[in-house]
Every structure is written in structure tokens, then in C-alpha cells.
Write a protein that binds this DNA or RNA. Structure first.
Length: 493
RNA sequence: GCUCGUAUAGUGUAGUGGCCCAUCAUGAAGGACUCUCAUUCCUUCGACCCGGGUUCAAAUCCCGGUACGAGCACCA
């Protein structure tokens, strides 16, 4: 057997678990181009992070390029927010750990899209349709051609010019891609490519664009043309855009282009969060319900980073979820677990005493206590706690235990708001609690978010020389970020 | 309604016909370490939606069912 069929004897190596993202189809190192294309109608939120992180990771892995493209072609329903462009650029870089290789703004590229309308019209695979949305809906369901479909090339070009020159107003006409009204999937039947917007009433928020254009491409057309112009090789996006791929593939066939490889992910719900849409958040911020895009209650990138969530944690989180088409619901604890792994090694320890109770010390204890900044890393130094006034603060919930050990200090017997020194070494298995000296602590607030509500816990915080934004571990409580005015923003436990 | 898609432990994921009485992470429970209810380490728990079929062999292929989701916007 050894000689006749050696392969049967070969110890098959146990297949190892695939790490990270699945491979890209027909991808060559150095030759992939991916893109992330948000509508800049607000800064990035949690869900956008998936798009940018997954596409960005692939770009990195395959030594390719990532394009950040602003799909800002709607001035009416979800108009762009002027300041969002710059913010998104920064947030994208923060999330990725590198700058996107190219930045494209759709509203700068309208002439390119018009140029392709000309090709489409003169090639006879597009037409100007003057049916109302309602009328066309009926044609779509009954699988019948609308009358405009029969227009010759010349009349189509005339009608197109009427769209451009203002003869037509919004609703009068759209440009459609000629597919086939008998297609099985109703979504694909002669889909709309461009429409007219009232940019006098609703100018584009970018000053340089304003009311310059009346005819604007819809997503499927704009995105399809731009992907081709930019040489995009792989598109990874939500599965809600599957029919978009099918529509765009039909357009690509007309143009004689090859459609990029596609991958999709399913819907993600975070158990602890309700439904947030960018438009709704924008309204709620404008009405004062939230303080801004970085409000800690909001699932925005600004909100998350402000409460101490790290970009690397977000990256690990989204990479772990991968690109499956399943609709999933994840608990926040999963993100927090990634975050803890990132921050714990670097987080200085600090004491925050909730609802403090003052105890007078009696006995022969030290007057200065040194506590390591991080128990696992002595190199991070230590905190020196002065006890000149011999008074300490402990949490009210710890008071009443009777016998307590003040962490890294000494054992005490507690009664009547005073603490009697027992020993510096551990004398028994009494509970160890965190504490603060009145000499080296001051009033502070711990801000937490619980089911969409901000709550502020009053207490005292050990003195420190940390800076705003530093991530700390609050002993026996959890992790937090140093905020302004002696507040500490809770991250998670 | 029409069309498209997905279904593996509580949650998320690996697995593309024999390595699988199923991977890893998270979670829960227990333990070790630790002067934090942290970190680290160890142990345990726990799953292939249902029913047919193809095959010597199916989590993996096919059909049907069920469940969930998405598209059918002059939004992205």
C-alpha cells in the first residue's frame, strides 16, 4: 500500500480556521480598487464604519486602492451637509488608520455623467420618459412598454435638452435605461437614471455647485458610471443593493463594460440601540434633543470615539463579523470586548468614589501611599497619595462591611465614620476596596449612558495629570475617558 | 403581490461531499493568578431550521416547506 497508494497514508493536515476576511474573487495584488460611497448628509455612523473598514482592509490586504466617494446627488430628500465632507474624510482616516487613496465628489462630476447620457441616448439604449411616476408604475407591473420608449434618437436628444434647459420641471421627465419590461424582476424594468431637481428652491449645499445643475443622476446611474471611470474592481456593499448590481450590470452591457466583482453583507442590528437614521439624527440634533453629532447617546463615529471606543476595536469588530449575507443582531458587549483588549494595557488606573463617605483614620499608618499606575506594568510608574489630614473617602456601598482593606494601603476596622488601623500587611481575607484621600482628590462627575439616557454620578476623583481624552481604567468600575471640568466619561465595564 | 437573498451553540463566525460525534471568538458557570468586580491563564456548557432526494458518504449538492430580511423611490 505504501508504494501503490501513498496518498491514502498521508496524514491529512487538519484544516486550519480561516483568519480574517474571506478572499476576494479574481483579485490580483496591487490591482484592486475598492470604494466606499456615503451620502454626506451627516457624519459617519456605526453602520458606515463597516463599509469603510471592510473595503479599506481589502485595499490594504491586496495593496490596492480605496476611493472615498461622496454620493451627493440628492439636493431634496437627503441633502448633503456642507461640513460633513471634511468630517467624513477625517473620520474615514481615523477608522482606517490611513488616508483613502482617492477622493471623489459626485457633484463635481456631473459633466461626466451627462457625457454618458449622450452616449446612451445616441446609442439608443436610453430614453427620455415623460410618464408620471404613477403611470410608469402601472407599466412596470403590467410589463408593458411606456409610449416614450418608442421615441427615436433625435426626439430623445431634443427632450433631453429640454430637461437641461429648464423647459421641463421636476416630474415632467426622467431619463431611463432601456432594459426589458418583461424582465422577471420588476425592479430592473427600464429603471430611471436621471431626474430633474428644483435646485433654485433646493440648491446643492456646496456653494460652488448651488443651482448650477437642474438634472441630476440617480444612485444607480451615477455609481455605475463612476465605478467604471475610476476602474473599480470590487464592490462590497449591503445586500439591499443587490438589485442595484443587477440594474447596473444591464447598463454595463449596453456600454460594453465589465461589471466589478461584488460581495454583500446583511443587515446589522445592535441589540441595545433602536433604529437611527442619519436624517433623523440630523433633525433631533437641530431640535436640540441631542447636543451634536458627538452626543454620547448617538451611534455615530464621533459619539463612539468620544466615549472611548478605539478605531482598532471597531476594525476588529467588523472584521470578525465578516461579509456574510445573514441579517444579524449583535450585542454591544461584543464591541466592548474588543475595546477592552485594545485599551487595558495602556489605561492608567484611577480611583473614582461614588457617593463618598468620609472616614477619619486612627492609628499608626503611613502618611503617604504609593500605588502602581498599572499593576501589570511597573514601568508606568505610580501614584503617590498624600494622607496629611488622615481622612479617606470610600464608596457608601462599601461602608458597613466593618472590616475592610484599603487597596495597596492597609487593613482597617470601620465604625462610626472612623477607621482604625489594624495592619499594613494583610491580616485576614477582608474585602479589598478602592479609596481616595481627601488631600489628593476632588469633586468630580462620572457620566454614563443607560438605555439612551445620560446619567451623572457625583463623587470624587483621585488627582491626576492626565489630559482630556485619555483613556483610563476606573478601579472596580470600568473604563472611561477624561473629560472637561473634572468629569469622566464612562466607556464600558 | 412580484422578485431576490439568507438559514451552524445565547450571540457572532469557520467549514464548499469523506479531515466534522463540527472551528474560533464572545457569553454563562467554575477555577488559577492578582492588594480592582480589571487584565492574563485553565476547565466546563452549548449548534448544523424542518421534510424529502442524490451519493458508498451531506452542515456541505438538489427539491419542497418554514422563518427572517431586502428590492419593486423622479432616496442613498
Amino acid at each position: 500500500m505504501q508504494n501503490e497508494a501513498p496518498h491514502l497514508l498521508e496524514e491529512r493536515e487538519k484544516q486550519t480556521r480561516r483568519e480574517g476576511l474571506p478572499e476576494l474573487n479574481s483579485a490580483q495584488k496591487g490591482k484592486v480598487v475598492l470604494r466606499f460611497a456615503p451620502n454626506p448628509n451627516g457624519p459617519l455612523s456605526f453602520g458606515h464604519a463597516r463599509g469603510i473598514i471592510i473595503n479599506g482592509e481589502y485595499a490594504k490586504e491586496y495593496e490596492g486602492e480605496l476611493i472615498l466617494r461622496f454620493d451627493d446627488t440628492d439636493t431634496t430628500v437627503k441633502p448633503p451637509l456642507p461640513e460633513a465632507y471634511a468630517i467624513i474624510e477625517q473620520e474615514a482616516e481615523w477608522l482606517l488608520g490611513f488616508k483613502p487613496h482617492r477622493i471623489i465628489i459626485a457633484s463635481d462630476r456631473i459633466d461626466q455623467y451627462y457625457r454618458h447620457v449622450d452616449i446612451m441616448l445616441s446609442g439608443g439604449f436610453g430614453y427620455v420618459c415623460q410618464c408620471s411616476a404613477d403611470e410608469f408604475r402601472e407599466f412596470r407591473v403590467s410589463k408593458t412598454n411606456c409610449p416614450c420608449r418608442a421615441n427615436e434618437i433625435e426626439p430623445n436628444i431634443e427632450l433631453w435638452n429640454k430637461m437641461l434647459d429648464g423647459t421641463f420641471v421636476p416630474g415632467d421627465a426622467v431619463v431611463r435605461v432601456k432594459t426589458d419590461m418583461e424582465l422577471k424582476n420588476p425592479a430592473l424594468r427600464d429603471w430611471p437614471a436621471l431626474r430633474i431637481q428644483d435646485t433654485i428652491k433646493n440648491p446643492h449645499p456646496r456653494k460652488e455647485i448651488g443651482s448650477k445643475y437642474r438634472v441630476w443622476p440617480l444612485l444607480d446611474f451615477q455609481s455605475a458610471v463612476e465605478d467604471h471611470l475610476q476602474g473599480v474592481t470590487h464592490i462590497i456593499r449591503g445586500k439591499d443593493l443587490m438589485d442595484s448590481t443587477r440594474k447596473q450590470t444591464l447598463l454595463y452591457q449596453h456600454f460594453g463594460w465589465q461589471y466589478p466583482e461584488t460581495m454583500y453583507w446583511g443587515r446589522v442590528k445592535v441589540h441595545e440601540w433602536g433604529g437611527f437614521s442619519t436624517s433623523q439624527m440630523r433633525k433631533d440634533i437641530e431640535s436640540g434633543k441631542f447636543t451634536g453629532w458627538s452626543d454620547p447617546r448617538l451611534p455615530t463615529i464621533a459619539g463612539l470615539s468620544g466615549t472611548g471606543i478605539q478605531a482598532e476595536a471597531l476594525r476588529n469588530f467588523w472584521i470578525e463579523l465578516g461579509v456574510t449575507q445573514k441579517d444579524i443582531s449583535v450585542p454591544l458587549s461584543s464591541l466592548y470586548s474588543h475595546n477592552t483588549k485594545i485599551i487595558d494595557d495602556d489605561a492608567p488606573r484611577i480611583s473614582f468614589i461614588r457617593d463618598p463617605i468620609l472616614l477619619a483614620l486612627s492609628g499608626n499608618q503611613q502618611s503617604i501611599v504609593e500605588i502602581p499606575t498599572h499593576p501589570n506594568f511597573p514601568a508606568m510608574g505610580s501614584r503617590k497619595i498624600q494622607l496629611n489630614s488622615q481622612q479617606v473617602l470610600i464608596e457608601s456601598t462599601d461602608y458597613g462591611e466593618g472590616k475592610l482593606r484599603l487597596k495597596e494601603f492597609a487593613d482597617f476596622d470601620i465604625s462610626e465614620k472612623s477607621a482604625e488601623f489594624i495592619s499594613q500587611e494583610r491580616s485576614d481575607a477582608r474585602k479589598i476596596i478602592h479609596w481616595a484621600s481627601v488631600d489628593t482628590s476632588s469633586k468630580a462627575t462620572l457620566q454614563t449612558v443607560n438605555n439612551g439616557q445620560i446619567s451623572k454620578i457625583e463623587g470624587v476623583l483621585e488627582h491626576h495629570n492626565l489630559l482630556k481624552g485619555d483613556v483610563v481604567q476606573i478601579e472596580r468600575i470600568g473604563y472611561g475617558v477624561i473629560g472637561e471640568n473634572n468629569t469622566i466619561i464612562f466607556t464600558h465595564d
